[in-house]
């Protein structure tokens, strides 16, 4: 489903060039739950951003469903993200002026779904993660854990092929983190492909495959028994 070939990413700051990703090769199959781990600065978030088309790699190719993402224009990538990918960010990334259901409905509306349908699907997604009583709360009226759940609902409402999560539990307490990871577990059981960056060993156990990055390279991959 997703194949990464010789992925490199350089950052330039004046004369200084930092090579964050040093030729990564990687494959993820449909329905997999993969945790990307590594110490701080290993390049795991950068790797996720390249795969999820939020950033442009310096070199290398990313194929999703055998289609080279390098061939897409910026607007095509935007549409691809809208229709095929879902994102859960570390800091939830909800729009503060929109309530929970509006946050979730927005990407659906952008897919030209009618307002009625979009709100129906958004409501269902929020109910699925236990927020059916907080549909009309603004992000500021929700706890961190609830905000992250809204973020997950937004990411899955349009049934994406791949769900990317960047340190989804980093800002949460243990209880909220467990709730979030259980949601991921349930989504995975339902066949959702998930690629998650985490530095917490405890939560990487929810994934079926763990990819270890160090110094911009994959240094270890292991399959976990669930």
């Amino acid at each position: 489903m997703i194949e990464v070939k010789n992925l490199k990413k350089l950052f330039k700051d004046g004369e200084t060039v930092t090579e964050v990703l040093k030729g990564i090769n990687f494959v993820a199959k449909g329905g997999e739950f993969i945790a990307i781990m590594g110490r701080s600065g290993a390049g795991k978030s950068t790797f996720l951003y390249q795969m999820s088309l939020l950033d442009e790699p310096t070199e290398g190719d990313i194929y999703i469903d055998n289609k080279n993402m390098n061939s897409l224009s910026i607007s095509e990538k935007t549409y691809f993200r809208l229709s095929k990918l879902g994102y859960v960010f570390q800091d939830y990334a909800l729009l503060p002026e929109m309530n929970a259901i509006e946050n979730v409905a927005l990407p659906l509306l952008m897919q030209n779904i009618s307002e009625k349908q979009a709100y129906k699907k958004a409501g269902e997604a929020l109910s699925k993660i236990g927020l059916d009583k907080k549909l009309f709360n603004l992000p500021s009226q929700l706890s961190g854990g609830e905000q992250q759940r809204v973020s997950i609902a937004r990411a899955i409402a349009h049934e994406p092929q791949i769900l990317f999560a960047d340190e989804p539990t980093a800002n949460l307490d243990n209880e909220s983190s467990r709730i979030i990871m259980n949601i991921f577990k349930e989504l995975h059981k339902g066949g959702q492909t998930i690629i998650m960056v985490t530095h917490e060993e405890e939560y990487s156990k929810f994934a079926e495959r763990i990819v270890h990055l160090d110094d911009g390279k994959i240094v270890q991959e292991r399959i976990q028994r669930q």
Binding site: S75, T78, R81, L85, A93, L95, L106, R154
Partner: peptide, 16 residues
């Protein structure tokens, strides 16, 4: 700017 980035990130068209 951050929220504009998020909007683009989740697939909202720049023109919108």
């Amino acid at each position: 700017r951050k929220f504009i980035g998020i909007l683009k990130g989740i697939g909202i068209n720049e023109r919108a």
